[in-house]
Design a protein around this nucleic acid. Structure first.
Lengths: 183, 183
DNA sequence: TATCTCATGTAAGTGGTTACATGATTGC
DNA sequence: GCAATCATGTAACCACTTACATGAGATA
């Protein structure tokens, strides 16, 4: 149900092929949404069946044919209707926390390892995001950012703030473990 | 796949009925996991079929019969094996951001409304969490917290840090909108 | 000769939501 | 009399993942 609106949003901004969209998931917007190519192609198919999308078959000499999708009138209306509806707050399920709930005096070491791994992974991701920000959204670049790009920057900021909060939490948990079970 | 390990974790801590678990999702651990009663009962059934769980049928005079579930030996092994495997970093999909990507000069007002609604909802949730922390995890209470309760507190901290990061982001977005589209 | 990019799909299985369904007891 | 609590489930549908599958051209 959600992917449908993601695709409507992306295709409303710019017509694209399934392949293009998958690539966007892999890089540009991957830090707040992603979907496998299988899911994307299937969804594009079913949205076309239900008249939300149309496509042009484009022949290419050097590369395989492709289908360039865009919104139909029905699709535009569906998107507009969705925009006018409030979104619900989402709960994020946290498997790491489930794992940590199993902590006891016998397996603390295991949990501490897991925590350290998560801390360094998260830190690496944080650095990746911060580098993107430095490279593409310096204060100067931001001043001349076209309006339709602003929310792409907002997406990156969401990634940064989330990962930093996560990292801070991981470190708190490390301290809690230390205090309760010793190190 | 995830719910399975949540149930193993909860039932390893303490045998319970489907009903008990649903109630836990509604209150105690609802800020980091939840599942509908339908899902819980179905999963308990299929985990019993695959020998991860066993149950005792308990007759009650005043109330309906109930099934008290607990881990089988196989279940304990499955949980242990899972604990020894690293968890993957999870991406959180963000529908609000998808919506905001649709911002243009014609619908800024709509988006600003949505943002304000999210800000006040998030702020309310934040206050709920902070009150829980004040009531159940004051510094004194925390000093005498039994080890098996520590991660329950960690769960609450995760809720607090996440909602605060989200709130900070919402306010950043409000400013970005203001700067790019005027208010 | 092997891997990468472009480009599209099917099939099977698992995970999750929404709607429908029952029935006794307790409290207002 | 009505709603809430206790207690369990089925059925249909939608969302998502993993594995399987093809095939041409470009690059190393």
């Amino acid at each position: 149900m959600s992917l449908k609106f993601v695709l409507l949003t992306l295709l409303d901004r710019k017509p694209a092929t399934g392949y293009d969209i998958v690539r966007e998931f892999d890089d540009a917007i991957g830090y707040f949404w992603n979907a496998s190519h299988q899911q994307v192609y299937r969804e594009l198919g079913s949205m076309t069946d239900s008249k939300l999308l149309k496509f042009k078959q484009i022949k290419q000499d050097d590369k395989p044919d492709k289908k360039l999708y865009s919104l139909s009138i029905t699709g535009k209306k569906a998107l507009q209707a969705w925009l006018e509806n409030p979104v619900k707050i989402q709960k994020n399920k946290n498997l790491l926390l489930v794992k940590l709930l199993n902590t006891n005096s016998k397996n603390v070491a295991l949990m501490q390892e897991e925590l350290e791994r998560n801390i360094s992974d998260s830190d690496a991701l944080r650095n990746t995001y911060l580098e993107l920000e430095r490279n593409y959204y310096s204060p100067q670049q931001r001043r001349t950012l076209p309006a339709e790009q602003v929310m792409i920057y907002a997406a990156l900021r969401k990634g940064i703030l989330s990962i930093e909060a996560h990292l801070a939490w991981l470190k708190e948990v490390r301290d809690l473990l230390q205090q309760s079970f010793g190190g």
